[in-house]
Design a protein around this nucleic acid. Structure first.
Lengths: 177, 177
DNA sequence: TAACCCATGTAACCTGTTACATGATTAA
DNA sequence: TTAATCATGTAACAGGTTACATGGGTTA
């Protein structure tokens, strides 16, 4: 039931359509929870059946109609009670580490190339996070309550990506010399 | 098809039964790929059908019989070719970050308590990794090829857990004062 | 004598992925 | 005129979770 929580969290941030949500899941919430548009549409139907969200049909000229979803008070209560229930650390699923674990059956050049490839991806993600930090949180001493929480999640991304980069560099060195 | 790779990687490390694999997925490979025993048994059947692994039935007195699975050369080739195919960074799925993203609908005490709870879990994991490092890799200048790769994955765990701890501490401070 | 370990499995269900489908509008 | 954007959906399948089931052996 975790996709539902991510959707409710996104809708709590701002009411929007399934299509908008799908785009949000490519940024913001999507940085720590990924989902395709099909999953989102399916989940929205269930959430509406459970009265956690309300849909308002918006008729548009020259564009397909859309449904704007809003959290109901029941949905908000449900989100809050989930947040208040302690959880364990989310399990990892990481391809790169599986590859490196079995790395000895390939050549070290292959593994080093893959590490460099991942280093480039992490560097790009770090740059994305840093530019969001500069653009949406230029003044860290003046954060609203909502902003402070968003900023904390951004800091996590920046810290973790920085750590990945350091580890990639260290591992490449260990394998090249 | 990623569980299959994790199983092949585990079997490449050492031939074992489904039951042993399930235990391995609570440590070693399990640190970066989790799976239940039901998933493992189901996947083993498929891998055997595809001739990526071979089963040898071991009859035991006073204990249920068991099947020891070994990688075939076809399975090894398949694992190697997967490792040689570049992959993108694995997507995240993290409950805590979703909770914090929507943190403003709960009290800051709730969020701080959850951060402390997670900090304790990360500290425990870090200790686990550090004791493995001390016990299985006491002399880092004398690593075999296989050990070097395992050591690199352990270093990742140590680095990431350390970063999580730093982030938890920083976030708690931001919310408490 | 209760609980846990060894060892494997079935069944039902939920979640996630991929492909396909529609149809108008807008920018290159 | 080609591709992308807006907006929603169906269908089939793969992967993951939870509960249930068996039955002997060992440890507290």
């Amino acid at each position: 039931m975790a996709l539902s929580h991510a959707i409710l969290a996104a809708l709590n941030d701002c009411a929007c359509s399934g299509y908008d949500l799908a785009k949000k899941f490519d940024g913001s919430v999507g940085f720590f929870w990924n989902a395709t548009h099909q999953q989102i549409y399916r989940e929205l139907i269930k959430l509406e059946e459970q009265s956690y969200i309300d849909a308002q049909l918006i008729h548009q000229e020259h564009r397909p109609d859309k449904k704007i979803y809003t959290l109901t008070s029941k949905g908000e209560e449900y989100l809050r009670s989930w947040i208040e229930t302690p959880s364990t650390v989310s399990p990892l699923k990481d391809d790169l580490l599986v590859k490196i674990f079995a790395g000895s059956i390939a050549s070290s050049e292959t593994i080093v190339a893959e590490l460099k490839h991942h280093r480039a991806q992490h560097l790009e993600t770090l740059h994305t996070y840093q530019s969001i930090a500069a653009q949406v949180f230029p003044d860290r001493s003046q954060l609203s309550n909502v902003e402070r929480y968003h900023y904390i999640t951004l800091r996590q991304g920046i810290g973790i990506e920085t750590e990945w980069l350091a580890w990639c560099a260290e591992s490449i060195e260990l394998l090249e010399f």
